[in-house]
């Protein structure tokens, strides 16, 4: 039988681990070894020097703006697309996924076309002394484009599986929409929401292509963490590059651990 042969099992598991080692484990390990390759001093300096601190703060700012808005969007989208049946529902669910299949470079480009100097609103913005491209708003918009689906995509299947009976029960017991959402829906999806928020944060922190296009890479001004890593790497400051990279990698590992935890909380 296919799956009960002992030797076969060992070989298949072995090949899987080998493949994952070459493509996933070793790169991850290398980041941390690289980060400390020139000692703790260099590591500490790399993540605390002013430019790095600025990049970290800017990245956090992007996350703080992006993630709550996407959480709100995810909740609204999941509520409207799972608690009600209407024509075009399935189509809407597909639409939400569109940013997944679009190149991040294009995600950045569209905002240059809209708000750049030669863009649709370029002149108007300049006349009113507002800047979107090569500034924080542009970075936020590009990041939001790319990370839009993450929270909604966690919530939709979860809420779909849970159905609407609990909400209906709450309604018959005299609770209105707000209380029903707060007391019944939200507690039932909190773990999925948590994972969505963390995954969305990880992606917002790490967004590179889209942000590259709109940021202009102005050091100490529009340089996010991934852009800072790129600059350090291109300047052959490998240890420093990996030091900043390792911070982001820790967040990625936390994301994975939370996912494992959440999947045990409510398996769909």
């Amino acid at each position: 039988m296919i799956s009960t042969n002992k030797g076969q099992k060992k070989v298949l598991i072995g090949i899987s681990f080998l493949f994952l080692t070459l493509f996933l484990f070793l790169p991850l390990l290398l980041i941390f070894i690289g980060a400390f390759s020139q000692g703790f001093e260099v590591f500490w300096h790399a993540i605390t020097e002013p430019m790095a601190r600025h990049a970290i703060m800017l990245t956090l700012m992007v996350v703080v703006i992006t993630v709550p808005l996407h959480a709100l969007f995810g909740l609204a989208a999941a509520w409207s697309l799972t608690k009600f049946r209407f024509r075009g529902r399935q189509f809407m669910i597909t639409l939400i996924e569109i940013p997944f299949s679009i190149s991040p470079v294009i995600a950045g480009l569209v905002f240059i076309i809209l708000y750049g100097v030669h863009g649709f609103f370029g002149e108007w913005l300049q006349a009113n002394n507002m800047q979107i491209i090569f500034a924080l708003p542009g970075i936020v918009l590009a990041t939001m484009f790319v990370t839009l689906p993450f929270i909604a995509r966690e919530l939709i299947p979860l809420m779909e599986a849970q159905g609407s009976e609990a909400e209906e029960a709450s309604l018959t017991l005299g609770a209105g929409g707000g209380r029903t959402f707060l007391y019944v829906t939200l507690p039932a999806i909190k773990w999925g929401l948590l994972y969505g928020v963390i995954l969305c944060s990880a992606r917002a922190i790490g967004e590179f292509g889209a942000v590259s296009v709109v940021s202009g890479r102005i050091r100490g001004a529009t340089n996010t963490m991934p852009l800072h890593v790129e600059i350090l790497y291109n300047e052959y400051q490998f240890a420093a590059a990996f030091a900043v990279a390792s911070l982001m990698s820790i967040f990625a590992i936390v994301t994975i651990i939370v996912k494992q935890f959440v999947e045990r909380k409510h398996p769909i």
């Binding site: 690289g34 992606r203 790490g206 490998f238 990279a245």
Partner: peptide, 21 residues
């Protein structure tokens, strides 16, 4: 868990790690 690493790890970080490797 590690299967999801490419979803969670910043692409630039993956890029420099793979290049060095």
């Amino acid at each position: 868990g590690i299967i999801d690493l490419p979803f969670a790890l910043p692409t630039a970080v993956a890029g420099i790690a793979l290049t060095s490797l």
